[in-house]
Design a protein around this nucleic acid. Structure first.
Lengths: 199, 199
DNA sequence: TAGTAGTGAGACAGACCTGTCTCACCACAA
DNA sequence: TTGTGGTGAGACAGGTCTGTCTCACTACTA
């Protein structure tokens, strides 16, 4: 009823499908994966159950789709940030700053990928793989930036450390200590980069 | 049947109760909190459902008890390590090493407190509070160690950073990269401490 | 012997879970 | 007009969830 397809959208690209993904994302973020039932998703998305099951093979398939969609958006945003390119240190600091702004959002509720790992943490599981992909992509992005400042091996170690700082900061932000976490992460990242460069 | 109370145990201290907590811990760790049903816990603990509900008010009560029990064990182990006291830098390195050994255990499956936060992440929730308590306790412990090397304010920042490294490393270990994570965490912690001491 | 505390076994209630199915409806195209 | 594809509504199956309840049993103590 409230979801008329506007003329410029091809129904094939399915606004319903996207709407289901967005609603599921919000609920998974707020309530968790197991705690969110299909019935709740279709009620809040205002679609019939069959509409959901025509677009996704199962709840797990929907979860994977939600994670992949969030991964695409995450990459887009970091790509956009990288396009306003600066010096390497500034770029790492910008990434940390991006996390700091995320932590301050009213709808922040921790990292969906980390939560997915907590609830579906078996290697080989598609949900597990989707989460690993996102973390590894961020780490590689940072290693690429740091390689301009230090050796490749040093950049690997430093990017791993900074990824850990970011993941730890996200956990602290979940516990209401995001500001303190970001300050410490910024300083620690700068110490790590300075030490890596010195070698 | 297989759970005869041996004479030296007072039945009041309830070996059943402890056995339920241990079984629940194993299942929560392996499967997650929502994914583990009461029926599964009592079946594997080989106790009647009423035995469980006489000892714990609800599943949530059991979860809190499991977390508190793990917290006590965690503190005990770090206390024991601290008793073999060394220089401050060595103590931080020992804590990181302790995590490294944990990552290598066959039954390692991520941090139960972080997982609990992912599944019951609303401030004020007793599960949330139990998780925050564990993280904050570790951070304060490290801040105390670092205060011997630098100013109190510096020690606060550095302990926050090292806690984040540890939490991030735990996440990476869940993704099968524990060894790499521990190496990077060790080096980063040493860089952070060196920088904090220099100020 | 009688009483008591803890327990086992399992039925039960009432809710919720995922996933399937049918049937009616509507917009649009040939 | 007659199809066709997407959808809505909701029944349904078969299972699982938490939590309560009863009744019988055992070990121990007074």
């Amino acid at each position: 009823m409230a979801y008329r397809v506007s003329p410029e959208q091809t129904p094939k690209a399915s606004s319903k499908r996207q709407h289901i993904v967005e609603t599921a994302y919000r609920l998974f973020r707020q309530e968790g994966f197991h705690a969110t039932g299909i019935d709740r998703i279709i009620a809040e998305a205002q679609v019939a159950k069959m509409t959901m099951y025509r677009h996704f093979p199962s709840k797990e398939g929907l979860i994977v789709e939600v994670l992949e969609e969030r991964f695409r958006r995450f990459e887009e945003q970091l790509d956009r940030m990288a396009a306003l390119s600066k010096q390497p240190e500034g770029m790492i600091d910008d990434i940390i700053g991006w996390y700091g702004r995320w932590f301050d959002r009213a709808d922040f509720n921790g990292c969906l990928f980390a939560h997915a790992l907590a609830e579906y943490g078996s290697p080989g599981h598609p949900v597990f793989e989707a989460s690993v992909r996102q973390k590894e992509s961020l780490r590689r992005r940072m290693a690429g930036i740091l390689a301009k400042l230090m050796s490749g091996a040093e950049a690997e170690t430093a990017s791993t450390a900074i990824l850990m700082l970011i993941e730890g900061a996200t956990l602290m932000a979940e516990m209401g200590q995001g500001g303190k976490a970001i300050d410490a992460a910024r300083r620690a990242a700068s110490d790590i980069i300075a030490a890596g460069r010195r070698t």
